[in-house]
């Protein structure tokens, strides 16, 4: 494994922790050459995955969420894992505007947002055991800095 940095965070599935998780994810990714837009994209995608754990996996019951981060070269990967009810049909859940239609006003756009803002989204789920969402984004290396490094070497 060519992991340059990693982190793991465990927290209860509460709506307050949605902001906590996305801020941690942004801080973790910040060592790459992220633009403000990259940071917004990462924050929003991680927020969606954590919100899914709070709203759907545990339906506001108590539960645990694990956020893992990994940086390898200029690619950052996050895994958001819950141990909740799981997703029966992942393909259906990932359809734009698909929502399980609980009482809250949900747009059903969570996975679509994750897919638009990250380069790769992989969802693994086992009904009754939980869901893991893997989000991957490659940050282009700052060309000026790369040129300077070549010149120096």
């Amino acid at each position: 494994m060519n992991t340059d940095n990693y982190m793991e965070l465990i927290f209860p599935a509460t709506s307050q922790n949605e902001a906590f998780a996305r801020v941690c994810a942004a801080a973790f990714a910040a060592r790459l050459d992220c633009t403000m837009e990259d940071i917004s994209d990462i924050k929003t995608a991680v927020s969606e995955a954590v919100t899914n754990a709070v709203v759907h996996a545990y339906t506001h019951q108590k539960g645990k969420v694990i956020l893992r981060g990994e940086i390898s070269k200029n690619t950052v990967t996050f895994e958001i894992q819950d141990f909740g009810k799981g997703i029966e049909d992942i393909q259906q859940a990932m359809q734009p505007f698909y929502s399980t239609g609980n009482s809250e006003e949900r747009s059903g756009m969570g996975f679509t947002v994750m897919q638009s803002f990250m380069d790769r989204v992989v969802v693994r789920s086992q009904p009754g055991h939980g869901t893991t969402v893997r989000l991957e984004k490659t940050i282009p290396v700052n060309s000026m800095e790369a040129a300077a490094n070549v010149a120096l070497s």
């Binding site: 924050k43 927020s47 969606e48 919100t51 006003e105 747009s107 059903g108 756009m109 969570g110 947002v113």
Partner: peptide, 13 residues
């Protein structure tokens, strides 16, 4: 400063 899909749901509502 940030809006996610919950914001989309809120605005549609």
């Amino acid at each position: 400063t940030l809006m996610d899909s919950s914001g989309i749901g809120l605005l549609i509502g």
